[in-house]
């Protein structure tokens, strides 16, 4: 029975409203309203007393026009792009490889590998950040010792402390932690592929490599696209790892500054610069636009095209 049959023109379907009300209210008040209100605030400016007044696009003009603001915004945007590219080039291919191996038929210890490789993903980014900070610390010397064992001790550098290596090192730490997510999502997609498809190819004499490359991979492209957009959203919203390892200043010399840390500093202030809610809201709105561009590109550029090809 649907409510339409009881004639919901006649009486208001109270039970539907009751079922929906708590979730819709909390979600609207603590998620949708703050998101919209942040966008609104980005068009305002506050005076010394804290009273806000409408300022049009002045905040955006400041961030994108003022030389200092523009430099730090572009620096954070560029660093965030690097952060994302490292994930796309390392995390997702490694996740794909692990998922492909895990889904091989009759693999022993399958669930043990799966469980153990996924483990770091469950831990807090903050904890992982500290763990790697210790391991890479020249004080402790673990990395040096390990490199010594394999004869590469000359390669050791304080990667987290150098301007030209800190960002990529942090990206790789994040990759190390989150490789379990693409692995598990792609693995789930591989399990859904009907066996008839692969069996037919086996009878024709195709080996696993061919089957993976020509049959399975095309079928899981939608999943890979979804993993990519999830990576994009997560990366452009990242904050915890940089803050835990490098603090709000994202050193050395802002070389690890990404949108999340720039947002935090703008909102709460740092050193001599006072925090500003309205400027913070402006940075958040710009982050929202970046994420929106990514999501729209995925929805209309990638997903539709993939849908058309998938069977």
């Amino acid at each position: 029975m649907k409510t339409t049959q009881t004639g919901w023109l006649g009486r208001f379907p109270w039970h539907i409203a009751v079922f929906l009300a708590p979730a819709v209210l909390i979600y609207t008040l603590f998620m949708i309203y703050p998101l919209l209100d942040s966008i609104r605030l980005s068009f305002f400016t506050a005076d010394d007393s804290g009273a806000i007044s409408y300022a049009g696009f002045a905040n955006y003009v400041t961030i994108l026009g003022d030389p200092e603001w523009r430099a730090s915004f572009l620096n954070a945007l560029y660093n965030n792009l690097v952060f994302f590219l490292v994930h796309m080039l390392v995390q997702n291919p490694v996740g794909l490889l692990l998922a492909a191996l895990l889904s091989l038929p009759r693999l022993r210890l399958r669930s043990t590998y799966r469980t153990l490789i996924f483990m770091p993903t469950m831990l807090s980014v903050v904890i992982i950040g500290f763990v790697w900070q210790l391991i890479l610390s020249p004080l402790w010397g673990i990395s040096e010792t390990l490199l010594y064992y394999v004869g590469l001790v000359d390669w050791f550098e304080p990667w987290l402390g150098q301007e030209n290596t800190a960002l990529v090192t942090l990206s790789l730490i994040s990759v190390w932690q989150f490789v379990g997510i693409p692995m598990i999502l792609i693995y789930a997609a591989l399990l859904l592929i009907p066996e008839d498809l692969t069996e037919a190819a086996e009878i024709d004499g195709a080996n696993h490599w061919h089957i993976f490359w020509h049959i399975k991979l095309p079928l899981i492209l939608p999943t890979i696209a979804m993993v990519s957009i999830l990576t994009f959203i997560a990366n452009f919203n990242a904050f915890d790892l940089i803050y835990a390892v490098k603090g709000a200043l994202a050193g050395p010399n802002f070389s690890t500054d990404i949108m999340g840390t720039l947002f935090y500093r703008t909102f709460f202030g740092f050193q001599l610069q006072l925090g500003s809610p309205t400027m913070g809201a402006t940075v958040a709105t710009l982050m929202f636009l970046v994420i929106l561009v990514g999501v729209l590109f995925y929805l209309f550029g990638v997903q539709r095209r993939l849908r058309r090809y998938a069977m």
């Binding site: 979730a23 942040s38 909102f267 809610p277 709105t285 982050m287």
Partner: peptide, 23 residues
């Protein structure tokens, strides 16, 4: 309404932090 409730899957709540703190 289903679409409205799904917005939060794609848009990170952190972006509303300024107003959340105010609230």
């Amino acid at each position: 309404l289903s679409i409205y409730m799904a917005i939060g899957i794609m848009v990170p709540i952190r972006l509303g932090s300024v107003s959340i703190l105010q609230l």
